Simulated scan of single mutants.
Amino acid sequence: MIVVSYQAIGFDLDDTLYDRCEIYRKIFTVMQAAVTHLEVDFETFYPIYLDYSDAEYELFIRHGKEKEAYRNDRVIATYKYFGKSINQDAAITFNALYLYFRDELELRPGVKMLLNYLKQQEIKMFVLTNGPSVEQRNKLHQLKLEEWIPASCWYISDELGYSKPDVDIFKLVERDLDVENILYIGDDYHNDIIGAQSVGWKSFHLAKQVTKYSLATQTVGNFDEILSVLNRV
């Protein structure tokens, strides 16, 4: 039996509890073959898409941009970055492919084992994620997260009026949980780690390599490692 000193442990959703990258790899493959071909590989395309996606999401959450417009514009902007002009129909196809492949979501290896252990020890768990409410809740249901974490502990930026890394969203979650010793696990250094550390939470950065001058309590490569680290706490 592991011994965990934290009162609550929280998780980011996208690219933490599941691997979002693989969904977009499938989308990119279809787009390349059937819609619009770029002279770059997926590893070059994906980080640029994420940058534009984050920028467009901020316009959606903070400045009232329409959801459909933000979703399409992030795709159009990414293709424009690589010198390819695409129309709304192509962007709609890209997003439709996302919905199609999203139905294949599954938890990362090791997640179920960790969640089962934490539930057995009655450690309070939560999810804190940026994104549109309906879309994020659909993912959480698809992953069957309610088996371990009640829907009342799913904190979604679209519903809260703040988004990571804003200090306010972390403070809101802390007040609602009514605990102090919190660990947060996420893959995005800026949104997850800096945000969590700014309010005094501990943080595990899920990453393949340590970020230079990292503020994270620990950098971990996978969920088996997380379980091992918690066992030593």
Rank of each mutant, 00 (worst) to 15 (best):
E147L: 13
L105V: 06
R62M: 02
L13D: 12
I156S: 08
D41P: 02
T44V: 14
N181V: 07
N191G: 01
I86H: 01
K112Y: 08
E174F: 00
E122P: 07
I193F: 02
Q121S: 15
D178Y: 06
R175L: 08
N191V: 04
L143E: 11
R108M: 13
A8W: 03
L160V: 01
E174V: 01
V127R: 02
K119W: 11
T78P: 08
V127N: 03
V127L: 06
Q142P: 07
D51P: 04
I86V: 05
G64E: 04
F11N: 04
M125W: 05
E66V: 02
D103M: 13
D103P: 04
H63Y: 14
T211Q: 06
Q32I: 14
V3C: 00
A55T: 07
D19K: 01
Y189Q: 11
I48K: 08
Y213N: 03
I9W: 06
L13V: 15
Y162H: 10
P132V: 04
C153Q: 15
K67H: 12
D192G: 10
Y18E: 00
A90T: 00
L97Y: 00
V127F: 07
E106A: 11
L38I: 06
R20K: 14
E106C: 13
D188C: 07
I76C: 09
L17P: 00
P47K: 14
W148T: 10
I76W: 04
S133K: 12
W201F: 14
D19L: 00
L140F: 06
E104F: 06
Q7P: 06
T93L: 09
A151L: 13
A90M: 04
L183M: 02
K212T: 14
T211H: 02
R175N: 13
Q120E: 09
C153G: 11
Y81M: 09
N116V: 11
N130D: 11
G110L: 14
K112V: 05
W201A: 09
V111W: 08
Y189N: 13
I27P: 02
T29L: 10
V233A: 12
P109N: 07
T93Q: 07
F28H: 07
V40M: 10
